[in-house]
Design a protein around this nucleic acid. Structure first.
Lengths: 232, 232
DNA sequence: TCAAAAGTGTTAACCATACACCCATGC
DNA sequence: GCATGGGTGTATGGTTAACACTTTTGA
């Protein structure tokens, strides 16, 4: 069923850089390409935008189809439109970055996407197309945004220890943080309302168990409207 | 000369929100549409992306064609892809924001774009398509970015007084700033190297003439690489 | 009892804020 | 001489940064 236009049109795709955190590394979800071009190479999940589909819906659909992931936090990153970025012709791609709680959902467990895998950001294989550029842009955006928006919590389980949180920040920002100052700041933020002490503690650890906290999303949204700014 | 594809493709356009500052107001460049849809309405400059043309080049071409503007500072803003944002069908638009030194160049003087005009951001006419949303996003981006990147200088003439600069910030941020603290901060920044005292003073003012400064772009770029951060 | 990580305060340096008067110039 | 904006310093309060030991728990 061919489609004909008076003027030529670029193809439009979406790509997703989905980050996860496993208490050790910051990781990214990649798929191994089954078709040419770049057959066998690793690439970002993504694909063509349908005519009746908003951009973000297209990313969610592709993520589900290619990796089985659903319910991902997503934000638009940047649109890549270099003339030669795809050997098949002019393809413009709207890139998104995503954050996912690796520990909560058993991601990639029950999917047929056997060619999808998580890679540590620090040890990525060579990527297809200009996906290394997209990766780099997404990583920089994450590093910038995590400092003034409470998006880090999207990478942690609902209940987490302050050490989990600190370690996440240290991993993303690639620098050590002072434990006492970190706790003081994050617990004191917004009048001490931002984190909820669940009253529970870690289980099955071979040392003193830490208290589990959760992020007070509702409280944050209320404060945000009143001009409150999360910062570091 | 028709073009045929196996799958349907959205149209791809670019739009530009170009800001200018005239020492009084923050302004935006709009064009009055000559064709349907929205004939006669004001809209952002923009148009279709050519097949052999990078996105930013497309914005620059459209800006030149529609408004006569060249040599604009441009950054990508966001890509708008709602299914119904254009009554003609699926049109995805990559929006850019631009900054221009209104005082230096006699913009719009010698162009045939008689249907282009500058409007104060605070008093915009109703806009075509979803251009009010794009405007709003651009304005917010400007307000956010001006605080941690030295982009304000793109809106001022090469030589400016500290009062010019302060007034620009007050206009963009929509709040008053303390004169002494502002001067202290901006002059002390980067070891006092960020602004160059040109040794010249204002001409033709009916009060004490202020010193003229220029932004030390080279010095800033050097410092930026070493991890220096401009901030407010 | 040892290992491993949790939890906890104080001090000093720095930075942000608030604030008011005299100066130079043109009319 | 008056109106207009240019130019300047200090004191206070708050924020950040540096820093080390005791506690709890399981192995």
């Amino acid at each position: 069923m061919p489609h004909t236009y008076e003027y030529p049109r670029p193809s439009l795709t979406v790509d997703a850089v989905v980050f996860g955190f496993d208490d050790q590394d910051l990781k990214v979800l990649l798929i191994q390409r089954g078709l040419e071009p770049f057959q066998g190479k690793w690439a970002l999940p993504g694909g063509f935008v349908h005519m009746d589909e908003p951009l973000e819906a297209a990313v969610r659909r592709e993520l589900k189809e290619e990796t089985g992931l659903t319910n991902v936090f997503l934000e638009q990153l940047y649109t890549f439109g270099d003339v030669a970025r795809d050997p098949r012709g002019r393809v413009v791609s709207v890139a998104y970055y995503g954050l996912v709680k690796l520990a909560d959902h058993q991601v990639l467990a029950a999917t047929d996407a056997s060619n999808a895998a998580w890679f540590p950001v620090a040890e990525l294989p060579p990527l297809a197309f200009d996906h290394d550029r997209i990766m780099e842009a997404a990583h920089k955006r994450l590093q910038g945004k995590v400092r003034y928006q409470p998006i880090g919590f999207e990478l942690l389980p609902k209940k987490f220890t302050l050490s989990n949180l600190q370690h996440l920040y240290e991993t993303i920002l690639e620098r050590p943080l002072d434990k006492r100052n970190f706790r003081k700041k994050i617990l004191g933020m917004a009048g001490g309302d931002l984190l909820i002490d669940t009253g529970e503690i870690e289980q099955d650890v071979s040392h003193r168990a830490a208290r589990l906290f959760s992020f007070n999303q509702k409280r944050y949204q209320t404060l945000e409207k009143k001009g409150f700014n999360f910062e570091l």
